[in-house]
Simulated scan of single mutants.
Amino acid sequence: MGSDTFVYTTYIRTTPDELWKALTEPELTRRYWGVAFETDWTSGAPMVWEEGGRRTADPEQVVLRAEPGRLLSYTWHTFTPAWADAVGLGRDVYERLAAGPRSKATFEIEPSGDTVRLTVTHGDLAADGPVKELIGEGWPALISSLKSLLETGEELPEPPR
C-alpha cells in the first residue's frame, strides 16, 4: 500500500456519549476487544494495557488527546515477548514489530442523524511493516464487534485463529 496510515469509518446507531464509554470503560472494552485500559483519559496520562491477565506499561504509552464524546487518541501499545507468545506470534514477527516505530490510534466521533460516524485512524506506521498488516485485518473485526455491542447489546464472537 505504501501509506503510513490506516483509516476505517463506520456508522453506529448510538450516541457520542455511549460510544465514548465503549471506547474507554474497561467493562465494555473487555467485551468486544479483550483489553482494558488503566488511565484517567487526560492528555499526557500514562496508559496500562491489560489483556488476558498481562499488564503492559511503558513511558511512551500515553493518551495524546481526549475530548469525551468527540475525540480520543493514544499511542499504540508496547510489543513485549510475553504479549507475542500469548497471541501466538513467532519470534521473527515479534522482532519486526518491536523494531518498528510507535504508532498511534485516533477515534473521531461525529453525530450523524440518528447514528454516530466513527473514524478510526491508525497512523505513524511503517508503510510495509507488520503492524500495518495486522491492523488491516484487526480493526475492521474489532470495530464490527463494537458496533454490534452498541446496537444489539452483544459483541460478535471471536473469530477462529
Results as ranks from 00 to 15, higher is better:
D4A: 13
F6M: 08
V7L: 02
Y8F: 14
T9P: 06
Y11D: 03
I12Q: 06
R13S: 02
T14C: 10
T15L: 08
T15C: 11
T15V: 10
D17G: 01
L19G: 04
W20E: 01
K21I: 00
T24H: 13
E25M: 09
E25D: 14
P26C: 05
T29F: 07
Y32N: 03
Y32R: 02
E38R: 14
E38S: 08
T39M: 15
D40L: 13
W41C: 12
W41G: 13
T42N: 13
G44M: 01
P46T: 12
P46F: 08
M47T: 05
V48E: 06
W49Y: 10
W49V: 10
E50F: 08
G52V: 00
G52P: 05
G53P: 00
R55M: 08
T56D: 09
T56A: 08
A57L: 08
A57S: 13
D58K: 07
P59I: 15
P59A: 13
E60M: 10
V62A: 02
V62E: 01
L64Q: 08
A66L: 07
P68F: 03
G69E: 01
L72Q: 01
L72R: 03
S73Y: 04
Y74R: 12
T75W: 01
T75C: 07
W76P: 02
H77P: 05
T80V: 13
W83F: 15
D85Q: 14
A86M: 13
L89P: 10
L89R: 13
L89W: 13
G90C: 00
G90L: 04
R91T: 13
R91Y: 03
R91P: 03
V93T: 14
L97M: 11
A98D: 11
A98F: 11
A99S: 08
G100L: 03
G100C: 12
G100S: 15
P101G: 14
S103P: 06
K104R: 15
A105D: 05
A105H: 02
T106E: 14
E110D: 08
P111T: 01
P111L: 09
G113F: 14
T115Y: 11
T115V: 07
R117P: 02
T119G: 01
V120C: 10
V120S: 04
V120H: 05
T121Y: 04
H122L: 04
D124P: 01
L125W: 06
L125A: 02
A126K: 06
D128N: 15
D128I: 10
G129I: 03
G129Y: 10
E133G: 05
L134N: 02
E137Q: 09
E137C: 01
E137M: 03
G138T: 07
W139I: 04
W139Y: 02
P140W: 09
A141I: 12
I143K: 04
K147E: 08
K147Y: 00
S148Y: 07
S148T: 12
L150V: 00
E155I: 05
E155Y: 05
P157K: 00
P157G: 00
E158H: 11
P160G: 14
P160R: 12
